[in-house]
Design a protein around this nucleic acid. Structure first.
Ligand code: MN
Ligand code: MN
Ligand code: MN
Ligand code: MN
Lengths: 218, 218
DNA sequence: ACTTATTTTTAGCCTTGTCTAAAATTTAAT
DNA sequence: ATTAAATTTTAGACAAGGCTAAAAATAAGT
């Protein structure tokens, strides 16, 4: 039986290691998990013992196939629950993450598959992140950061990089949601700010904003 | 912050102590929790420290008002989730308990209130048990055991005492569900078996069955 | 190449929740 | 009223998951 803590470590390694491939450092994990490097070393040993990660002292850690699938399944559950909270329980997209962090650890294959069906097999969560299938796979959509678009480009918002409550509520305030059409009116080279057209109004946004909005060019 | 384990102990004490009133023995808790008396003593001390139970050495334990409310809230969550699983995710009534044991520990007031609304404020779970409100209260319906009914009585099944998978599947097999009309055709004094009329057929049931079916006489 | 800085691991300790075995207390039986 | 039986608590141990401080290994700087 895998513990909540083990699942959280696997998820962190998955994200840090670009979906399970790259070597991840002990400190990077400690940072992400908000814990100490010594605690990470201890846990990595347990995960290696269970063959969920491959670990060589001082060199770093990667997920095994078994670890990758476990991590992807936790992420699948997290994102499906986020969809449930927004679509069925009227949560706002900035309120779901904390609850999903708990729900993602519920163990029941039937539960998650029925939930998936109940939600009509969503492909993305409320923040635009893809939902892995049962095998832990998902097609990666070609999204790009709004910051990288040229002047006069038309695009549609399809996701957020930063999904903090503060950023999401900023977007709410300015009527930017997934699916919202955006046009780049101008870019300021000095501070990388942008003037965009959104929801019938023009809006000046900082590079912090444009660097955290994923869009699909039209 | 209250732990999963603490919540489970409170729930056990709540059930054993008739909703929080009576004094509960250490052994009774150990039995119900499938643990050892020494572990119970340790935990009781922690709960007493947190003022969730009142405890005097060798005498037994009762819930405080704070403990009673905490226990009732966990039970509220458990039963709401059971309704969700049956009503929305097509679980059978014998499949929900294990998953609800996990879901009942999720911490989010908004989650449980929105779930309650989404389910349209159900009053009973799939086994006929009442769902406490936010204050931990519920009106107790006057149900009685089928075993106690006299010959020729008409009644409706409104709950199960034993909610084990085995018993529930036995009921499924014989088309007995919540709401099903039952008539007592005869009672055998020798072994307390009964012949009943249900779903258009006559059926002989043992005292193990009639002692575990709650009904409302018509 | 050698020294310094950074990263990582080890060693030892703590808390939570569990256990077994022994001691203390209460209850039951003569 | 004693003695025996059952219940409950204490003492001491352990595994999981965390911590701090010190040691070891790797990486960087001159
Ligand atoms: Mn999230
Ligand atoms: Mn998300
Ligand atoms: Mn249940
Ligand atoms: Mn139930």
């Amino acid at each position: 039986m895998i513990t909540f803590s083990e699942e959280n470590y696997l998820k962190a390694i998955y994200h840090l290691g670009k979906f399970g491939n790259a070597l991840v450092s002990t400190n990077a994990i400690a940072d992400k998990m908000d814990t100490k490097a010594s605690s990470v070393t201890d846990m990595i040993k347990k995960l290696a013992e269970k063959e969920l990660v491959a670990y060589t002292k001082y060199q770093g850690t990667t997920l095994t196939e078994k670890g990758r699938l476990t991590a992807a399944t936790v992420i699948r559950k997290h994102r499906l629950w986020e969809v449930f909270l927004v679509e069925k329980l009227n949560f706002n997209w900035d309120e779901v993450h904390e609850v999903a962090e708990q729900l993602e650890h519920i163990k029941s294959e039937k539960l998650i598959n029925q939930l998936d069906a109940f939600l009509e097999f969503p492909t993305h969560d409320p923040h635009g992140d893809p939902i892995p299938d049962k095998e832990g796979n998902f097609k990666k959509t070609n999204k790009e950061l709004l910051a990288n678009l040229a002047k006069a480009t038309h695009c549609i918002c399809i996701g957020v990089k930063d999904s903090s409550s503060e950023f999401l509520r900023y977007l709410d305030k300015h009527k930017i949601a997934l699916g919202t059409a955006i046009e780049v009116l101008s870019k300021e080279t000095f501070d990388d700010s942008m003037v965009i057209q959104v929801a019938g109004k023009t809006l000046t946004i900082s590079k912090e904003v444009s660097n955290n909005l994923y869009v699909k060019a039209q």
